[in-house]
C-alpha cells in the first residue's frame, strides 16, 4: 500500500469513527519499499487539496521521513520543486509492505502483510 492510503483510512470499529484519536492510524514496525515513479508536479498539486496536513506530518515522522513544513504548501510554495519532490516520494513512491496500523482510540492494530492491510475485525470488535 502507498503511504497516501493513510490519508483515506481510519479505524474500522464503528465507535471510533467519531473520535479524533482514530485518525490518522499510526504506522508501527513498518517496512518500506520505494517504487520509482515519474515525477509529475501537477499530480502532486492536484492531490494536495485532499491531504490532511497535520495527519501527514504525523505519518511522515512515524515513518522516519524528514520533517514536513508546518503548514500545507500554498501559492509560491507550490512552485518549490524540492517540496513537491519530497511529497511525491513520501506519498506516491513509498509503499508499506509489512507492519501494522494502530488506532489511537481503541488501540486495535491492523496487520499489513505483503502490502495488503487487513481491516477485518475480530468478532469481539464487530
Amino acid at each position: 500500500m502507498k503511504v497516501i492510503t493513510a490519508n483515506f483510512v481510519t479505524c474500522a470499529v464503528k465507535e471510533c469513527k467519531t473520535s479524533p484519536a482514530s485518525f490518522p492510524l499510526h504506522f508501527q514496525d513498518a517496512e518500506l519499499e520505494q517504487q520509482e515513479l515519474d515525477f509529475q508536479p501537477e499530480f502532486i498539486r492536484n492531490i494536495l487539496p485532499r491531504i490532511d496536513w497535520e495527519a501527514l506530518r504525523t505519518i511522515s515522522n512515524e515513518l522516519g521521513f524528514p520533517s514536513l513544513p508546518d503548514s500545507k504548501p500554498e501559492g509560491d510554495a507550490l512552485e518549490n520543486e524540492q517540496t513537491l519532490r519530497d511529497l511525491h516520494r513520501l506519498l506516491l513512491e513509498t509503499q508499506v509492505t509489512e507492519g501494522k496500523l494502530t488506532c489511537g482510540n481503541c488501540g486495535h492494530s491492523y496487520m499489513i502483510k505483503e502490502g495488503i492491510a487487513n481491516f477485518l475485525l475480530p468478532s469481539h470488535l464487530v
Binding site: 481510519t10 485518525f23 515519474d38 506516491l92
Partner: peptide
Amino acid sequence: SPQSLHISSLTADLCAPLRPGS
C-alpha cells in the same frame, strides 16, 4: 508516463475502514 495511481487494496468489509467523506 503512467499517472493514475492504485494506492491500495485493503482486506475489509465494504467501506468499514474508509475515512468519512473521502
